[in-house]
Amino acid sequence: MRRTAGARGRWGRAAALAVTVICLAYAPIAMTELWPYARPGAPAPGEWLLGRSVSPEFVAEAVRDRTGPYGRSLVPLIAHSVLGGLLMLLGPVQLLSAVRRRVRLHRTTGTVFAVTVYVSMAGAALYLVRTPPAEAFSGAAFWIVLATVLAGTVGSVTFGVLAAVRGFPDLHQRWLLLCYGFLMTAPLLRLEWGLLPSLYPGLDLFDINRVALMHLGALVSSGALLASRALDRRATVPGLTGTWSPLPVRIAAHLAGAAGLVWITAAFLDEGTAGRRLLLAYLVPYAVTYAVIAVRAARSAAWPREEWSLHLTALCLAPAFSAVTVPVLERTLDLDRLTALVAGVGIGCGMLAYAAVAAVSLRILYAREVLRRQRESTDLPAAPAKAGAALEGGRG
Rank of each mutant, 00 (worst) to 15 (best):
V360L: 12
A385S: 12
A387H: 05
G348H: 07
L362Y: 14
A389S: 14
Q374T: 06
E376N: 02
A382N: 04
T378R: 11
Q374V: 02
A359P: 03
L362K: 12
V370M: 05
V342A: 00
L391P: 00
V342H: 00
A387R: 11
L371G: 01
L362W: 15
V370I: 10
A389L: 15
V345D: 00
P381K: 10
A387N: 06
V342K: 00
E369W: 07
A382P: 00
V342I: 14
S377N: 09
A355Q: 12
A385N: 09
D379K: 06
E376C: 01
V357I: 12
A383V: 12
E369M: 04
T378I: 02
E392G: 05
L362N: 11
R372C: 04
L365H: 08
R373Q: 12
V360Y: 06
D379Q: 11
G346N: 02
G388A: 13
A367K: 04
R372N: 09
R372T: 11
V345K: 00
G344E: 05
V360S: 14
A340E: 08
R373K: 08
A385T: 12
A385Y: 12
A358V: 15
R372I: 03
G393S: 04
Y366I: 01
Y354F: 14
L338E: 10
V370P: 01
A383D: 07
A387P: 00
D379I: 04
